[in-house]
Design a protein around this nucleic acid. Structure first.
Length: 210
DNA sequence: AGGACGATTAACT
DNA sequence: GTTAATCGTCCTC
């Protein structure tokens, strides 16, 4: 457990790739769902214009400035929840957005939470989908992931350093060229090639460089 | 007090 | 490839 905590007390850009392959278990609502993390994005605080914490500590971003190993859940687009794992030391904002995962346990509960998913690989493909199939929302914001028996728990795969790929983050309009998205290659739960990404990025460049 | 915009998704054509 | 859905957060007045 100490090793896990020490690992988390680093920048999200370091922790991000190391989270790939780790398993997050949620016992929200009494049923257990576990996900093997396959795609993440790193968000820093000061110096990262794409981060929620860029403009400093607010009620929403308070958890991001708190101790490592806690869950930062936020609401977006008026309908979706997304989940991050807080990194770095207290007072420094840094978090890893969980973008995709493979459901490895509790698949029936995950399916019930995500009826729109036509295949199992789609249950946790996308940050809001992942949060949904784990049952994560406002009530889980700030949850300590490193305490055994917690409602949401993170288990690292010891000794495993999986090869990963990196690229620009998705869905942001600033700092679009930082390659802080990390994913495992050849995973069904990851959309490694996203035609939409390129287009979105091109659009951003067009508006910023007339 | 008001308004713009989002770390997205699903269901269209 | 396009678009509606939908509301919390934060900035501006």
């Amino acid at each position: 457990m100490t090793v896990e905590r020490r690992r988390l007390a680093l920048s999200s850009r370091v922790v991000g790739p190391r989270l790939l392959g780790a398993v997050l278990t949620s016992r929200v609502g009494g049923s257990s769902v576990s996900v093997r993390i396959t795609e993440v994005e790193a968000y820093e605080g000061e110096g990262d214009p794409a981060s929620h914490a860029f403009r400093g500590l607010t009620p929403r971003t308070a958890v991001m400035f708190g101790p490592a190993g806690h869950l930062y859940c936020y609401f977006t687009y008026g309908m979706h929840w997304c989940a991050n794992i807080v990194c770095a030391t207290e007072g420094v904002a840094s978090a890893v957005l969980l973008r995709a995962g493979e459901v490895v346990e509790g698949i029936d509960t995950a399916r019930a939470r995500r009826p729109a998913a036509s295949r199992d690989a789609e249950l946790g493909r996308g940050p809001a989908r992942l949060a949904t199939c784990l049952g994560l929302g406002r009530a889980q914001n700030g949850t300590d992931l490193c305490t055994s028996g917690s409602e949401v728990e993170l288990v690292w795969m010891p000794g495993r350093r999986l090869p990963f790929e990196a690229g620009p983050r998705v869905g942001i309009t600033r700092a679009v060229d930082q390659p802080w998205r990390f994913w495992l290659a050849c995973e069904a739960s990851v959309s490694t090639f996203r035609p939409g990404d390129r287009q979105r990025r091109r659009r951003v460049r067009q508006t910023e460089e007339p």
